[in-house]
Amino acid sequence: MVDATVAITSETSENEVLSRIYEVGYHIIPTIAEENLEKVVGGIRATIEKAGGSFIAEGAPTLTKLAYPMEAREGDRRISHDRGYFGWVKFEAPVAIAEMLEEMLKADASILRSIVFRTVREETRARMKAPTLREVKRTDTIRSSPRREEEVSAPISEVDLDKALQDITTD
């Protein structure tokens, strides 16, 4: 146990810069044109690359409905948005990147909200399919079942009916 800790500390001092796995998630304001999205994402990627980071995985920004309205400052006014282009990047970079990236994202007016946190290299998204209430095949058509033909019975006499009623009531 003690040996392991010693080994780790010596390793980090050799490398000098300690690299960690981070993920950045961001919402780009929905008013931005779709062709300019790449420019904003490019800015984030450039910041990571400049700090000596390498990319692991990425999710392209897609228009997502927000669970609650978020306000963004546009000049002097505050504008409320109910949707945003949500994207994310997973990368490995020296520890100084986290603070740098956060500051850069906060300063960017086209970023509605962002988050930077430590994660693991493996794919973290669950490969589980959310349980559906029931599965119905699209091709299935509901066929109407043939109606049961009404039973044609012989006319019941009054006497028989009375007798049957009597039996029921005595029971």
């Binding site: 973290t124 669950a126 959310a130």
Partner: peptide
């Protein structure tokens, strides 16, 4: 235990459908 049953080792904040179950 949904996570153990489906062999989910990491919980991602982007998995909204999974999180909604909790």
């Amino acid at each position: 235990n949904i996570l153990t049953q489906n062999d989910i080792r990491h919980v991602d904040y982007k998995d909204v459908d999974l999180l909604k179950q909790f």
